[in-house]
Design a protein around this nucleic acid. Structure first.
Length: 450
DNA sequence: TCTGGGGTCCTAGGACCC
DNA sequence: TCTGGGGTCCTAGGACCC
């Protein structure tokens, strides 16, 4: 059996834990740059506000109904997530952290000891609420896909009290009939349209299609597995998250700019900042990367901009894997140069690190020193000391706050710097007009109790 | 005027290997 | 005139997830 615990309206719930006066009130949280709605309270959903609605389009509705608006506060959400996951690891035999607000629980064999897993799921749910203040729902079923489905039903049907356990074939058949096919895990917009055209409307309909049909129309083996999982035959196991942290196969950092940028050095500064962050995560995970991608995007909503809106360039590092920000940056600069078009307004940039591996699994040496056009300018004597430099960089930023020590390329040109505060925002920084304090991760933001 | 970010998995053509 | 089969890696892009 698998359990799937999913936090209700997670970002909104995090804000409410520290500002309980918004309990029962309509609340939304916006994406970076205060762009779109990415979390809505039940009251906000009832007003017809949709996931992903652009803020500027629904601004009037928000004002009219006195909806409380928050900019996103990832420092807060990340820390609250850590607390939720920590608790789950105390009470479940194995936990797979699936996203910031969701985890699969391995409950294999536990029904033998506990009889029904319903009471156990309720206890976990109550425990999370008591320790973190975050409301959740739990689905329990023989496959991950059915556990997701059970969770979704528990979310929608308040009478279930936040938990649904699909213990019998009869209950499973009932559950499959409740859910439209587009809400099944793994069925996106494209597949939903295709399925509708084929007369497949509910999860129950999808569970009945043949293996051959699923393979042909739903992305090959992926679709075949999906149907099997709906039928109650597990195709995916649980991948436990070691020591409560996620270890990823790729690490990325990207941002939409606060305003369009057309100067190379401004975009390069953004790329350098994003790369610094990505490399920091890479080192925190204890890995090195040997594939680097840089991409830049134009405004895909502008009438006068033609696709492609985004261009990317990927490079397999000729020197092999590295976790060194400065080495990665020398290549990132090259890749950006390859993508760059003059007199173009860019709206977004990003970097991706791939080909992650732990150090010491066979370092590639550069046999032909003169070979590639992508050779970094680097004095060998300096390179040997770089791991220590990176460790110091991370330690300083950990102790004094993110960005305390930066790569100079990431710092805006001299003209931008406010010498009194030293805090003038970089040209790419976005809006965040309504951000709450980092209640749990910044000493200055600690709540005061009178 | 204003439209997010971080992931996974899959596909497909070309270069290259034996 | 006739020109293989089975692989891997690299790169770019797309569907889907939360």
């Amino acid at each position: 059996m698998f359990g799937l615990l999913d936090c209700n309206n997670f970002y909104v719930s995090c804000e409410r834990v520290f500002q309980p006066r918004y309990e029962g009130q309509p609340v939304v949280v916006l994406s970076n740059n205060d762009g779109n709605l990415i979390s809505r309270s039940a009251e906000a959903k009832a007003l017809g506000l949709k996931m992903g609605d652009p803020y500027f389009q629904v601004k009037d509705v928000l004002q009219q109904h006195n909806v409380k608006v928050f900019s996103s506060n990832y420092a807060l959400y990340g820390d609250m997530s850590r607390r939720v996951m920590y608790h789950l690891q105390q009470v479940a035999p194995a936990v797979e952290i699936y996203s910031i607000d969701e985890a699969f629980l391995d409950l294999a064999g536990m029904e033998t000891y506990l009889g029904s897993l319903d009471a156990y799921a309720r206890k976990i749910r109550d425990g999370v609420k008591a320790r973190t203040g975050i409301p959740t729902c739990v689905g329990v079923a023989p496959t991950k896909t059915l556990a997701k489905l059970a969770n979704r039903i528990a979310k929608k049907d308040a009478a279930l009290g936040g938990v649904l356990y699909l213990d019998s074939p009869e209950r499973r058949a009932w559950a499959l009939r409740q859910v439209p096919v587009g809400d099944v895990w793994g069925v996106g917009r494209q597949y939903a349209a295709k399925l509708a055209a084929a007369g497949v409307d509910s999860a129950a309909d999808l569970a009945r299609v043949s293996d051959a049909w699923a393979r042909k129309h739903l992305g090959g083996v992926v679709g075949a597995r999906l149907v099997q999982e709906l039928q109650g035959r597990p195709c995916a196991g649980l991948h436990p998250s070691e020591d409560g942290t996620l270890s990823r196969q790729s690490i990325s950092c990207s941002r939409t700019f606060g305003k369009p940028l057309s100067a190379f050095d401004d975009v390069l500064a953004a790329v350098a900042a994003f790369l610094s962050r990505a490399a920091e995560k890479l080192r925190a995970q204890g890995d090195m990367a040997h594939v680097l991608t840089v991409y830049i995007s134009k405004n895909r909503f502008a009438a006068n901009v033609l696709p492609p809106y985004s261009k990317s360039a990927t490079l397999t590092l000729p020197i092999g894997p590295t976790a060194d920000t400065t080495v990665l940056l020398s290549y990132a600069r090259l890749l950006l140069g390859r993508l760059w078009e003059k007199s173009t307004a860019y709206h977004k940039a990003g970097v991706v690190l791939d080909g992650l591996e732990p150090p010491g699994t066979g370092q590639q040496l550069d046999l032909f020193a003169a070979a590639p056009a992508v050779k970094p300018i680097e004095k060998p004597a300096l390179v040997t000391k770089r791991p220590a430099l990176m460790a110091s960089l991370d330690a300083l930023n950990q102790r004094f706050g993110r960005g305390a020590v930066q790569i100079a390329t990431a710092i805006p040109a001299a003209g931008h710097i406010n010498t009194t505060s030293g805090k003038t925002p970089p040209p790419w920084e976005g809006k965040a007009q309504w951000r709450s304090p980092a209640f749990t991760t910044r000493l200055e933001d600690l709540m005061l109790v009178n």
